[in-house]
Design a protein around this nucleic acid. Structure first.
Lengths: 248, 248
DNA sequence: ATTATATGATTTGTCGGACAAATATAAATG
DNA sequence: CATTTATATTTGTCCGACAAATCATATAAT
C-alpha cells in the first residue's frame, strides 16, 4: 500500500517561531514604529537558539515587516503589500498556468479600473497620454514598441491614484512582455484574424474614448484590445485540460 | 543642516546572498523540481558562513521557492504568487492608506472579472449562487451575514477559473470585513442615504442579472453594490490629503 | 541468489559561543 | 555647558558541534 505522502509538513522550529512572532505582534497590538524586544530576549522567551530566531526575523525583514539597526534594536515597519510578489513573479521561474493566471488577473484589473479612471482623469493626464500615443510606433500585428506599451498602461494605472494597483502593474508587466515573446507564433495568427475582421483596437482608439468621456465604449474597446490574450488563454487552457485528462 | 536620512540601505550579506541565489537560479535556467547544491557547497562558493546562507534560504523557503529534505537536499518548487501577500495583509498591522488601496484593488478586480464570469458561468454555478442567496439574511443597511457575503463573492471569483484571482479574494476578504466593522459609523449614513435614494443593490439583484445574461446591467449593479465603499474611500482620501497639506 | 537487517555516510535542523561593527549612553575633559 | 572619549549594548557574521532523517553500502539470513 502506497501511503499517501503526508504534506512535506516538516514544520521546522523556524516556521513555528515566525508564526509565534506574528501572533505576538498582533496580540500586543503593536503598530508601525513600535519597538520589539531584542534578539536575546526573544530567543530566550521563545526557548530557541538565536540562529533560529534570526532566520524567522530574516523572513519578516524580507517582507518589510521589521527594520533593524545596530544597537537601536528592531521596530515594526509597514510591509509592502506586493513586496513578496515582486520576488516571485519571474516568468523564467513560473509555470505556464501561473503565467496565464497572472495575465488574466492583469487584464481583469485593467478593465476593472475603468470606472476609477473616468472618475479621476484630468486634462493633464489626457495630455500625457496624447504624448505617449504620439511617440508610440505600432508595429504590424497589434504590437507596440515595448516602452510605449509600458508607458501607456502604466499611466492608466497611475490615474487611479491607488498605489497598490500601480505597483501591481509594474510587477506583472514583465509577464506580459514575456508571454508576448514566448508565444508569438500562437498570437500572430489570432492577431491576423482580428485584423482582417477590423477588430484591432489601438492606444489611439482608447485615448479617443477617454477624451470623449465615453466610458462604455472605452471599456468595450479595452476588452477588445486584450481579446487576443483572452482567446489565447482559453485555447491554452483547453489544451492543458485535454492533456491532463489524457494523462489519466 | 539636517542630512537627509540615506535609506536604511544597510544591505546585509543575507540580502546579497538572497539576490545572488535568485540570479543563480535564473542564470542556470533551473526549473521547478530541479535540485540545487547543498548548503556547504553554496556557502563555500558564495564565500559566506552557513548561517548567513541559511537565513537567505529560509526566506526563499518562506516564499515557497525551495523545499528541503534531510539528506535529499534542496529542490526548486513553484512559489505561490500571492503567498507573500497572505502574511502581510493583516488589517491590524496595515495602515489606513494600505487598507483603502486593497479595498479599491478588490473592487476593481471584481468589476473587471465580469466579462470572464459571463463567459464561463454554468447553470450549476447559477444554482449554487441561488442557494447562497436563499440562505443569506440581509441585515438592515446593506449588510449581509459574514458567511453569506463571503460565500457569494468567493463563488463569483471561482467562476473565472483563475486560481490566482480566487486566492486573492480569499486573502483580502478579511480586509473588507475589518473595514466594514471599524468604520461602520462612517458607512452607516452613506448606506442610509443610498437606501433612501433606492440605490441599494442586493445579491439577489446581481443574481437576477446573471440569470438574464445581462452583463452591462450586472456590471452597473455591481458598481452600485460597492458604491458605499467608493464614496467612503474618496472621502477619506480627501481628508488625508487635507491633513497632509495642513501639516506642511 | 535474493531478501532482510545493520552499519555508515550525508545533509538539513538546531544549538552555542565568539567576535566585529555600529551607536546610544555614560564618563571625562576643556 | 560643550566636546571628546570610553563603555556598553545590539545586530551582523563566522565557526564548530551534534541530532535527526534517510540514502547507500555491507553483512547476514533464507
Amino acid at each position: 500500500m502506497e501511503r499517501l505522502k503526508i504534506q512535506n509538513n516538516s514544520v521546522t522550529l523556524v516556521d513555528q517561531v515566525e508564526d509565534k512572532l506574528l501572533n505576538y505582534f498582533r496580540e500586543k497590538d503593536l503598530q508601525t514604529g513600535d519597538p520589539i524586544p531584542n534578539e536575546m530576549e526573544l530567543s530566550a522567551s521563545l526557548g530557541v537558539a538565536r540562529s533560529v530566531l534570526r532566520e524567522a526575523l530574516s523572513r519578516l525583514k524580507m517582507m518589510g515587516m521589521i527594520e533593524t539597526r545596530t544597537r537601536r534594536g528592531m521596530v515594526l515597519t509597514e510591509p509592502s503589500i506586493l513586496g513578496g510578489m515582486r520576488r516571485v513573479v519571474d516568468p523564467r521561474i513560473l509555470g505556464e498556468d501561473a503565467l496565464f493566471d497572472i495575465l488574466g488577473f492583469r487584464i481583469a484589473l485593467e478593465v476593472g479600473i475603468c470606472h476609477d479612471i473616468f472618475r479621476n482623469i484630468t486634462p493633464e493626464d489626457l495630455e500625457d497620454l496624447e504624448e505617449i500615443v504620439k511617440v508610440g510606433i505600432m508595429y504590424e500585428n497589434n504590437e507596440y514598441a515595448p516602452f510605449s506599451e509600458f508607458a501607456f498602461h502604466t499611466k492608466l494605472y497611475k490615474i487611479t491614484g491607488n498605489k497598490t494597483i500601480a505597483e501591481f502593474q509594474n510587477i506583472v508587466h514583465p509577464v506580459m512582455t514575456f508571454v508576448k515573446d514566448k508565444f508569438k507564433e500562437y498570437l500572430a495568427p489570432i492577431n491576423m484574424r482580428l485584423q482582417e475582421e477590423g477588430r484591432i483596437v489601438t492606444h489611439r482608439d482608447l485615448l479617443r474614448y477617454l477624451k470623449d468621456d465615453d466610458e462604455d465604449s472605452y471599456r468595450k474597446a479595452l476588452e477588445q484590445h486584450f481579446e487576443v490574450y483572452k482567446i489565447f488563454i482559453s485555447k491554452k487552457n483547453n489544451v492543458n485540460r485535454q492533456q491532463k485528462t489524457g494523462e489519466k
